[in-house]
Amino acid sequence: MGLRRTGEFRQDAVRIALTRGLTRKQVADDLGVGMSTLNKWITAHRDTDVVSNEDLGLAQENDRLRRENRILKEEREILKKATVR
């Protein structure tokens, strides 16, 4: 029989998955749980106060900034290659 996870563990897993900017796969692997299990926990806790609106807003802003940063780095690399010629 598998290891039973406490409610607190599940809530922490959901908080990490929704706020840390990691993929769900990374979180599941780091915590030693399956993807389907993590997704089930997220669905179950999505409408609870396990993650405050402020934390969720900050996480969404971090995601947006990470995407923007990645795009800017890619553009910089393209410009570097263009100026080398």
Rank of each mutant, 00 (worst) to 15 (best):
R10L: 02
R46A: 06
T83I: 13
R10T: 05
R15W: 12
N62Q: 12
R5M: 05
I42Q: 03
G57N: 11
E74H: 11
L18G: 01
T37Y: 06
V33H: 01
T23N: 08
V14R: 01
R20F: 03
A59K: 00
D29A: 14
V33I: 10
A13E: 01
R70V: 08
L56Q: 05
I42G: 03
D30A: 14
R66F: 11
E75P: 00
V50M: 00
V27K: 06
V14W: 02
T19L: 02
L22T: 02
L18N: 01
G34H: 04
G57A: 15
G32W: 08
Q60G: 13
V33Q: 09
L22D: 04
F9H: 11
L31K: 12
L72W: 09
Q26S: 13
I71V: 14
M35G: 07
E61T: 08
M1A: 15
L31P: 01
R10N: 01
N69L: 11
G7R: 15
D12H: 09
R66N: 12
R5S: 08
G21W: 02
R66P: 00
L56A: 08
T43L: 04
E61W: 00
N39Y: 09
I71G: 02
R20C: 13
A44G: 00
R20E: 12
R4C: 06
N62Y: 04
H45K: 07
N62C: 06
G21L: 00
G7W: 07
L38P: 00
V14E: 01
R70K: 10
I42C: 06
T23K: 03
L65P: 13
N39H: 10
Q11W: 00
L72N: 08
K73M: 14
L3N: 07
V51G: 06
L65Y: 15
L72I: 07
D55Q: 12
L72P: 03
A28F: 04
M1G: 14
L18H: 00
V27L: 07
L65H: 12
N69M: 11
V50C: 06
G57H: 08
L18Y: 02
D63S: 11
T83G: 04
G21R: 02
I16H: 05
R70F: 06
G7F: 07
D47I: 05
Q26G: 02
L56T: 03
G32M: 08
T43V: 10
L3I: 09
E8I: 05
K40E: 13
D47Q: 10
G57Q: 05
V84W: 08
D49P: 06
E54N: 05
L79E: 11
A17P: 00
T23V: 03
V14Y: 02
G21Y: 04
I78L: 07
F9V: 07
K25Y: 13
E75Q: 14
Q60S: 12
R66K: 15
S36K: 11
N53E: 10
D49W: 07
R66M: 04
K25C: 10
V50T: 04
A82I: 05
N69K: 14
M35S: 13
D49K: 11
N69S: 15
N69E: 09
E74S: 15
R10M: 07
T6A: 14
E75M: 05
A13M: 03
D29V: 08
